[in-house]
Amino acid sequence: MLSIKNLKVEIQGKEILKGINLEARAGEVHAIMGPNGTGKSTLASVIAGREVFDVTGGKIIYKGKNLFDLSVEARACEGIFLGFQYPVEIPGVSLVNFMKTALNEQRKYKGLDPIPAKEFLQKMEQTKKLLEMQTSLTTRSVNEGFSGGEKKKNEIFQLAMLEPTLAILDETDSGLDIDALRVVASGVNKLRTENNTFIVITHYQRLLEYIVPDFVHVLFDGRIVKSGGRELAIELEEKGYEWIRQHT
């Protein structure tokens, strides 16, 4: 699914990622943990194709394609979804309209006709039900005036609507109370299949109690310094990131 080889990334001449290696296969859930400012969000943004970063080395192969050959929207159409840490507000654009546009663009990319209106509405209703979402959110403008929790739920809603093959959730748990966290996590769990891959970026072990990862990677100072199973997250929680610092 995803193969990252020796990825090096700079922003304004400052090296953020110093050689990342990561392999993720279909059906797997990978968690990336690490202290603030170690490059977790940078990694997510580079996979999605954010232009502010300069890739200075390495490559990312996704479904056999070199990701750097694809534009942001082409990557999205190829099934890459980024759940934003800070979802942006788009005033005046209703979520319904936004989702319909996105879905149809992705269908167009795949050579499919636009989704019939009725089918689209049904899909939305089902998805809302699946995620226990309030009806009113979809008629409001994208993220405008949403609370922190609503924004994050909205990201999961879009994830469910677009059915990506690779979903990267960037600190989806930050700013969520425990109830919202449960809703978000159960949504993700319902969407896990053997055909898709999740990369869950988080600072805390808390989220991983709800979304159980197959692999845990610790990102520190631009490198993955430790990889392991779920137990690594628990060990990390107990010993703190200082423990990693001492071991690198």
Binding site: R50, V72, E73, F84, V88
Partner: peptide, 15 residues
């Protein structure tokens, strides 16, 4: 904003 554009593009919508 660049952020709005990126957000849309990440969902598969071209510029």
């Amino acid at each position: 904003s660049e952020d709005q554009l990126f957000y849309c593009k990440q969902r598969g919508i071209d510029s």
